[in-house]
Design a protein around this nucleic acid. Sequence first.
DNA 1: TGTATTTTTCGTGTCGACAAGTTTTCGACC
DNA 2: GGTCGAAAACTTGTCGACACGAAAAATACA
Lengths: 234, 234
Amino acid sequence: MTKQPSSPATERKRGEGVKFVYEILRDEIIDLVLPPGSPIDEIQLAERLSMSRTPIREALVRLAGEGLVTTLPNRSTVVSNIDFLNLHTFFDALTLMYRVTTRLAAEYRSPADLEVIRSRQAEFAHAVETQDALAMISTNREFHAAIAEAGRNPYYLGLFLRLLDEGRRMLRIYYSSFDDRLPQQYVDEHDGLVAAIEARDIALADRLAAQHADQIVNQIRQMMARDRRQQIAL
Amino acid sequence: MTKQPSSPATERKRGEGVKFVYEILRDEIIDLVLPPGSPIDEIQLAERLSMSRTPIREALVRLAGEGLVTTLPNRSTVVSNIDFLNLHTFFDALTLMYRVTTRLAAEYRSPADLEVIRSRQAEFAHAVETQDALAMISTNREFHAAIAEAGRNPYYLGLFLRLLDEGRRMLRIYYSSFDDRLPQQYVDEHDGLVAAIEARDIALADRLAAQHADQIVNQIRQMMARDRRQQIAL
DNA sequence: TGTATTTTTCGTGTCGACAAGTTTTCGACC
DNA sequence: GGTCGAAAACTTGTCGACACGAAAAATACA
């Protein structure tokens, strides 16, 4: 692995250092480039990004606050593990946030919001068409994030984004077992959500969101069960 | 204001510096010792706590992640303002978290949880008896936090604690207009919640929590309206 | 006297270095 | 050869110092 020593291409403005590191690490954690349990070496990172340890440590504090990394005092900080024992708490919260954000979107969406949501849905549909599982995962996240934005409640948005990112990590683990049938169903369900939001039908939006959440939760559960059988079979 | 220069009483172990600063600032912000908008000077703080700026900055990053302070790039970081324009989003989320956590507590509470909840309720009742408004605010927070703990969902707990702290700041502003009638009603409502949780009556717990939330939201609204009238009168 | 511009001051953002603690390695002893 | 203990290597936590940028002060000008 050859590392270029402080290439001028990576020069950053003052004040963007923390943000820079934060976003890189965040993406690498969510995309499982850094799998759960990976130790994060501050010095190594500092050399790789050609900057001092100070902004890196501050980015790690921020990531720790969001639960993406865990700091072991006086020892290394590691990428947080996915807590498979308490998955039900995750699914519970995820389902509720799906419902609440969709509800609020139906209530408060502006025309501009609708446009964004529609374009995100188009991106998701395209990922399904081209059978790009990784793109499905990320565009699905963006679709629901756009809905949450339209709901205009920063408290729900914050929790929801955290849950969506956590969900992305799980889906990445099992994405190879995506089958072809379900994704198309998701596209249809998304269309239903968009229609309910456009029609400002709050009750319908809530109901469809709950159904959609159940679908996703069940799929993740099935993927995990299948994977477990495979692992046992090995 | 005389500050003692690096008194040996404030000597801390390695690795506790950030936590130390974080907790001090957090308490001072929630108790309005540092009112919204106050600038936080890193150098001043470093001198006051007789430590370097590094751990202080890391504590500020953490506080910023929780929304308690706002960092103005290349300028000072200030205590976050209370967003009175979007209060309804706060009340919405607070009400939902009241309901969800109480529900889950009724479902999952252990005998030990019940004991903690009861003792918190006793503390709240005592604060009401002695008409200690400030103690009412903090014990009320601890009571609901204990219920959320019993619900055993870290995602809800995290959001709820954040909302409760934000609510504490608001109540502090208006606590002088606490009147004597409502607090006793809160004690009774809390008793109802505890009974529902003990009986594992999920539907009842949900209903009572929703009513309780409405009470609190309405009281805060009334306090604010009263205060606004006073301000206009001046 | 009021306004525009330069200078000064001040605080943050970043850095390199040192100190303390943990893990690993090496060596002594059984 | 295996186990226990000491020393070395490494990583984190903290520090003091410098550089950049923004606000405030001082100066020039109308």
